[in-house]
Amino acid sequence: MAKLGTHALLLAAAVVLVPLGLVLPTWLVFLVTIGLAKGLVVIGLVVMMRAGLVSFGQGLYYGLGAYSAGLAANFLGLNDAVLLLVIGAAVGIVVALGLGVLLVRYRQIFFAMLSLAVSMILYGALVRSTALGSTDGFNLPPPTFLGLAPDVETGRRILFVLALLLALGTASLLHRFTRSPTGVLGEAIVMNEIRVEYLGASVSRVLLITYVIGAITAALGGVLVALATSHIDPDLAFWTTSGEFVFVAILSGTGHVAASLVGMVLFETVRSFAFQYSPYTWQMVVGTAMLLVIVFLPYGLWSLVSRGEGRSARP
């Protein structure tokens, strides 16, 4: 992939997949849209994990993004998908800047547990809020797209294209980030934080930037899922949702951000088919599939590519 260039491959993926979105069955378009939306969350999480920030609380920003979109649509009458994405990202940034200053002072399991705790505070608040539908959540009206108000099926296809372009664009940007001085410093912090400080670099700055990136992508993913399903509920912020993102990030491998998109779409596909054909034992099917990946690809799906390049992917 390195020889061909990540950006060229992502562009090629966009050129191939955008037309497919116009002809594929609606159920598949919906499935991939959800996969891409959640993949966005995982991309940001992978960037965080490369800097040692293993968050078990990305559901916080995922839920915040979705609820921001839902509230803006229902109470402010703002229905445009692009505008709702901007609002979701902005809410993610503001909250992440506030929380990040505190959370990035912690490392490893302490960071993981604190991030989980904060997301569960949001979950608890949403469950207790009758104004926001409590555990049932509430519905969103169909979105418009830069002023266009298409029918439901066309809207789903446009949303797919939007999710695809957003996911591939984000993957391209974050791939550049991982190769930038700040991105590489994130990896360096995991290896030797003391040396980073004694090089004159700010560990807290690097980690805060990385944390905010994770919040933005999670919020964007939340907005897209809210728009795709036209419904939001507190489960978006529940700990199992956050755990699923970590799970997919590990399965995809942290060697490359783009692997997250493929991993998440595959995960959603396996889960959907397992649920359809084995409704009472679908968890076993998903679990077995995941176990096979762990056994044969211990560094995640990305190791299929990195093996070809003659170098190992980072766990």
């Binding site: 190769r179 930038s180 001085p181 991105g183 090089l199 004159g200």
Partner: peptide, 13 residues
């Protein structure tokens, strides 16, 4: 790290 207190976010290392 020595070049600037705020290393680039998107430029290549």
């Amino acid at each position: 790290s020595a070049e600037t207190e705020q290393p680039a976010l998107l430029g290549d290392l």
